[in-house]
């Protein structure tokens, strides 16, 4: 089981091979298509994080001392970034999620997606992941 830092380092390495932005996004889109997400029938308003551009649904659970998340979005690029965040956050202790630094997003040049101005729901999702983790500390 790799650590929170190692998981992020591995994602950075996956993206380092691409020079072209479009190639990076092709990978993100692939990841978005691969994750299970939350099927529309199982989505509800409690999970919804409304963005100005895209919407995000987030579900979290806590068992065996660790957090697990599933999430979805109506936009595939948002969903791809969700896949990355879930890869990093899933199976981690609440304390880790709250305290450890989330650095891979910036390293691979996707920080714009987590800026308040982007309004794609992702910033709200990370905040809610941390809030959900806080309930189990």
């Amino acid at each position: 089981m790799s650590t929170f830092k190692e998981k992020q380092a591995s994602i950075i390495a996956d993206f380092e091979v691409f020079d072209d932005w479009m190639d990076k996004y092709e990978l993100i889109i692939e990841l978005g298509k691969e994750i299970e997400g939350i099927i529309p029938a199982k989505r509800n308003d409690r999970q919804l994080i409304e963005g100005c551009q895209s919407r995000v649904w987030l579900d979290s659970s806590f068992s065996d001392s660790v957090m697990n998340f599933s999430a979805d979005s109506d936009a595939i690029i948002t969903k791809g970034i969700i896949a990355l965040l879930i890869k990093v956050f899933n199976g981690e202790k609440p304390e880790t999620i709250i305290k450890e630094e989330l650095f891979f997003i910036k390293e691979i040049g996707l920080q714009e997606h987590l800026s308040p101005t982007r309004a794609n729901g992702l910033l709200g999702m990370v905040k809610r992941m941390k809030m959900d983790a806080l309930k189990h500390v």
Partner: peptide
Amino acid sequence: HPFDLGTLLDKQGIAVRT
């Protein structure tokens, strides 16, 4: 989704609104 197209257009230097 318009957000997806807008993001990929931006990466190619095209500024549109979505």
